[in-house]
């Protein structure tokens, strides 16, 4: 049973890590808007159409100047 003297301190180190991770998540606002987070992954970060539209827009502005 001497194994518990290794494993339990190890689990406490993991616990400290888990608490640190949770605090980090709270601080970085991960828990601020639970209504939204559940759906965010459904949307594309990089929308091809949008990117092209912005580039076109920038190009136009450059032409104006």
């Amino acid at each position: 049973m001497t194994v518990i003297y290794t494993l339990i301190p190890l689990s406490i180190i993991l616990l400290i890590f888990a608490i640190w991770a949770f605090r980090w998540a709270v601080k970085t606002k991960q828990f601020d808007d639970l209504d939204r987070s559940g759906r965010d992954f459904l949307f594309d970060d990089d929308d091809e159409l949008h990117r092209r539209a912005i580039e076109k827009d920038r190009g136009r502005k450059r032409d104006d100047a």
Partner: peptide, 21 residues
């Protein structure tokens, strides 16, 4: 709200561990 959430986190993780022992 955030500070309360942090307390819940500590209490929750601590409780799980203590209950295991």
């Amino acid at each position: 709200r955030r500070s309360m959430l942090k307390r819940i986190g500590v209490a929750g993780l601590g409780t799980m561990q203590v209950m295991m022992f």
